[in-house]
Design a protein around this nucleic acid. Structure first.
Lengths: 148, 148
DNA sequence: TCTCATGCAACTGGTTGTGTTGCATGAGAT
DNA sequence: ATCTCATGCAACACAACCAGTTGCATGAGA
C-alpha cells in the first residue's frame, strides 16, 4: 500500500512516461520488481504502460477522483490487520467466543480505516508533497534528486 | 493474539494445572510450540508453570481484571496493521507525505482497537464461552471433547 | 530412583517477499 | 530493414519467518 502510493505520486511528479528503471531508482529497488507491482496497477486501471522506445508508465486516472480507499480496494482489500482468527469457522466453542469478540472489534476497525481512506485522494497527497517541496526549498535544503 | 486468548480460556475451563501436551491437543499443535507461547505469557505474569509430576500451566491472573488490551500490550503491542510505512523516516518528500497521511489514519485505527479491547475482559469471553456451551447442550449436540 | 513435565537448543520444512537473470515481444528511431 | 529501448514473462536464488520436530537436560513429586 505504502509502496503503491509512493510510486503513483512519483509518477504524478514526472513529466510524461516513467520507465521501470527510473521508478526503480526512485524506489530503491529493481526494475522487475517495479514491473510486477505496476502490472497489477495496470490491470486495475490505475496506470497504463507503453512499450518500445520512449515508452514507460503513465497515470491512467484522475488524482483528484481516486481515494486511498479506491487504491486499497483495487489492491484486493488485503487484510488490514496483522492478526486474524486462528480458524475461520471453528467447532471449538472457545474459539467461537474468541472469534466473536475479536470479530466485532476488527469490523469496527476496518470500517474506520476505510472511512479515513475515503477522505483522502491521491490529489491531496500530491498537494501535500508539493507543499513539502516548496517548504524544503524555503529552508535552503537541496532538492531531492528523485523528484526533479 | 487469537491463539493466546484461546489458550487462556481453555486453561480457565480446566481444573488444576494443564500440561503442555494437553493444551497442544486442544490447540491442534505441538507441545513445544505451546511451551514457547506459554513461556512468553509466564514472563508477562499471565500464567505460571510448575515442573515435575502433576505440574503444568495455571492461570496467574484474575480473568475479570485482565482486558484484551492488557493481553495485547503484554504481547508487546505488536503491529496491529498488516501494512506499514515503506520507510520510517524517509528523506524522500513523497514518502513523507504518504507516511503523514497513512500515519494519522493508522493512529486513529490503533486507538479504536485499543478502546474496543479495553471493553472486554477475559472473564467476558469465558462467560460467553460457557453460554455457548450450555446453548450447545440444549441443542443436543455432543460436547466438545477438548472442554470436558 | 523412577516417572512426569517443563526448559532449552538445534534442525527441518513450507511459505513469503525480494532480487536477479535471461529471453521474447512490441514499438519507435535511424 | 534493423537497431535500440522498453515492457512482459518465466525461472531461479536468496533470506526471513513461522511451525513443527527431535533430543536432552533439569526439577519435582510418587
Amino acid at each position: 500500500m505504502s509502496g503503491v502510493l509512493h510510486v503513483l505520486l512519483h509518477m504524478a511528479a514526472f513529466e510524461g512516461a516513467a520507465t521501470s528503471e527510473r521508478l526503480a531508482a526512485v524506489m530503491g529497488t529493481n526494475p522487475v520488481v517495479v514491473r510486477r507491482l505496476m502490472a497489477g496497477l495496470r490491470d486495475l486501471g490505475l496506470v497504463g504502460s507503453v512499450k518500445g522506445h520512449g515508452g514507460g508508465w503513465k497515470l491512467a486516472c484522475d488524482l483528484d477522483r481516486v481515494t486511498l480507499r479506491d487504491v486499497y480496494v483495487a489492491l484486493g482489500s488485503p487484510g488490514i490487520l496483522a492478526m486474524g482468527h486462528r480458524r475461520e469457522e471453528p467447532t471449538c466453542l472457545v474459539e467461537q467466543a474468541v472469534n466473536a469478540a475479536l470479530g466485532t472489534a476488527f469490523e469496527d476497525v476496518e470500517r474506520l480505516l476505510l472511512e479515513r481512506f475515503s477522505d483522502v485522494t491521491l490529489g491531496t497527497l500530491s498537494a501535500d508533497f508539493r507543499a513539502r517541496l516548496t517548504s524544503s526549498d524555503l529552508c535552503g535544503q537541496e532538492r531531492q534528486p528523485d523528484v526533479a
